[in-house]
Amino acid sequence: MVAATALAAGSVAPAQIVRAPATEQAVAAVANSEPLVTTPLSNEPLAPAEVAGSEEPGAAVVPAIDTPAVRRGASLSETVAKLRSADAGSRELECLAVGVYFESKSEPLAGQLAVGHVIANRAESRGRFPSSYCGVLTQRGQFSFVRGGRWPSVNKNSLQWKNAVAIARIVDADIHDSNVGKAMFFHARRVRPGWRLTRVASVGNHVFYR
């Protein structure tokens, strides 16, 4: 699978969606605008991102590392348990895991999977968004936890991080489907942005659109 967001009343105003260079346009977070991706910021200190230059248009997606054999038909929780790791194994998978972690680490696994699929869908959007996980993650104005290509530090020994790595591997290898389909936007249930988009599903604490 080609390697390939939104949330927060009372904390951060929605960020703006910025299209890929070919159709670049800034859109304000108001009714009738395209949706954006926002999330409450962490108080942890910022750590340097490891994705310099990955947002360039046409950047090739780094192939996923080999993952342990998983049984097709296994439940999502079984597969996550099998694929948990502190080490994502590649820069691209780490970017995907970072997105899952900061946007949905407190969500049920199905919610984390849905967020991972949104990032993947964006990377597969053929020009609308950057063509790599890292490019999608660091695209200007998309994820409010990313500032200047940097994000808060992650405790890579935590179970939440290891789960995020597992979800990233699952999304990248297309092991489990998510009921959000080709959704490329989402927001927290507690906000009402008034987007004029097709609502796809509601999973965990988020509502997804395409």
Rank of each mutant, 00 (worst) to 15 (best):
53 G>K: 13
36 L>A: 11
56 E>R: 11
31 A>R: 09
210 R>K: 13
91 R>Q: 13
184 M>P: 09
104 S>K: 10
153 S>N: 01
25 Q>A: 05
170 I>Y: 09
181 G>R: 09
13 A>P: 12
165 V>G: 07
173 A>M: 08
33 S>K: 06
46 L>H: 01
123 A>T: 08
1 M>L: 11
149 G>R: 05
206 H>M: 15
41 L>I: 14
187 H>A: 01
66 D>F: 03
131 S>V: 04
57 P>S: 08
123 A>Q: 08
210 R>M: 03
23 T>F: 04
153 S>W: 06
48 P>A: 15
87 D>E: 11
151 W>S: 03
181 G>I: 14
9 A>F: 07
38 T>G: 14
22 A>N: 06
139 Q>M: 09
35 P>I: 04
98 V>Y: 06
19 R>W: 10
156 K>G: 04
95 C>L: 06
26 A>C: 04
81 A>Y: 05
111 G>N: 02
192 R>S: 11
60 A>R: 10
19 R>H: 11
35 P>Y: 02
90 S>L: 06
71 R>K: 15
169 R>Q: 11
112 Q>Y: 02
71 R>Y: 00
178 S>Q: 04
210 R>E: 07
25 Q>N: 12
93 L>P: 06
82 K>L: 09
187 H>N: 02
47 A>T: 15
19 R>V: 08
132 S>H: 09
183 A>L: 04
33 S>I: 01
135 G>T: 15
43 N>F: 14
187 H>Q: 02
179 N>T: 12
65 I>Q: 05
16 Q>W: 12
137 L>C: 13
98 V>Q: 15
149 G>F: 03
198 T>G: 06
168 A>Q: 00
59 A>V: 00
42 S>F: 11
6 A>D: 06
147 R>A: 14
42 S>W: 13
46 L>T: 08
197 L>A: 02
47 A>M: 09
2 V>D: 11
136 V>E: 10
44 E>W: 10
17 I>A: 12
27 V>R: 02
191 V>C: 10
150 R>E: 10
15 A>N: 02
61 V>H: 00
41 L>N: 14
182 K>G: 09
163 N>A: 12
96 L>F: 03
43 N>P: 05
153 S>Y: 00
87 D>W: 00
143 F>A: 07
138 T>R: 00
185 F>Y: 10
92 E>V: 01
105 K>L: 08
186 F>I: 07
109 L>K: 04
172 D>K: 15
79 T>Q: 10
28 A>P: 12
122 R>N: 09
166 A>C: 04
181 G>K: 12
126 R>F: 15
64 A>W: 08
168 A>I: 07
102 F>Q: 03
118 V>R: 00
182 K>L: 14
184 M>C: 02
31 A>D: 07
68 P>Q: 10
119 I>D: 05
126 R>C: 13
157 N>K: 09
197 L>W: 04
55 E>A: 13
3 A>F: 00
121 N>C: 01
96 L>Q: 12
126 R>Q: 15
27 V>Y: 11
11 S>K: 15
93 L>M: 03
29 A>N: 00
135 G>K: 08
157 N>M: 07
30 V>E: 11
111 G>V: 03
134 C>F: 07
24 E>Y: 13
158 S>N: 03
41 L>G: 08
166 A>K: 01
61 V>N: 12
70 V>K: 14
102 F>P: 02
178 S>D: 01
84 R>V: 06
